[in-house]
């Protein structure tokens, strides 16, 4: 099952750990903690591809930051963490967590979001099973072809091949070419004598 990912942007160590602890109680979640005080926050936020971002709306008064976040809203949902005020800005917030919420309430809120996300994810692609196309590509990887060669052979762009590869790795839990080769042999996608 694909994990639902959260990134917490928060300066306070206690709050970060507290939120991470609460979310960690929900199965199939993964939490990344970021100190929002760090200088690299723009870069980190730009490259953040988690499902949910937990952030204090207060720090979004910074317009640059707000712009970056707005661009992310296609794939990422925002959860507001409210420490001392109830003020939200005009961004689209999926949920709010207050510093005074107790554990059950936080878990309930997060659980609801996780549930939605899981259904969404399982619809967009069945989690563990690799598709016919992916099997075809896996076969070529195992035979020792490069991304470019596979792309030419199957009339795809290299970019598409790379995307397929990422999906294969994620679904199988195998990252390296030799690892994928063993998988291909064990599952009779290629013959042991064909492997290099």
């Amino acid at each position: 099952m694909l994990k639902v990912t959260f990134t917490i942007y928060e300066e306070s160590f206690l709050i970060r750990k507290g939120l991470a602890f609460a979310i960690g109680k929900i199965p199939n979640t993964q939490v990344i903690e970021q100190n929002d005080n760090s200088e690299e926050i723009y870069e980190i936020l730009k490259n953040d591809d988690s499902d949910f971002i937990i952030i204090n709306p207060k720090i979004m008064t910074n317009n640059n930051l707000k712009e970056i976040v707005e661009q992310k809203l296609i794939n990422t949902q925002l959860i507001a963490f409210l420490a001392d005020s109830k003020e939200l800005n005009e961004l689209k917030w999926a949920e709010t967590i207050s510093i005074y919420d107790d554990q059950n309430i936080i878990i309930k809120k997060i659980n609801k979001l996780v549930g939605h996300k899981e259904t969404q994810k399982s619809k967009s692609n069945s989690p563990e099973e690799i598709s016919k196309r992916e099997t075809e590509i896996l076969k070529n990887i195992a035979l020792g072809f490069s991304n470019k060669e596979i792309a030419d052979k199957l009339f795809l762009s290299t970019h598409t091949v790379v995307t397929h590869r990422k999906n294969i790795t994620r679904k199988l839990g195998i990252k390296t070419v030799p690892g994928l080769t063993i998988y291909a042999i064990l599952n009779k996608i290629i013959d042991i004598n064909e492997a290099k």
Binding site: G173, I174, T176, P178, G179, Y183
Partner: peptide, 8 residues
């Protein structure tokens, strides 16, 4: 690679 070996 160790990660892969474990998973296999």
């Amino acid at each position: 690679k160790l990660f892969d070996l474990k998973n296999i």
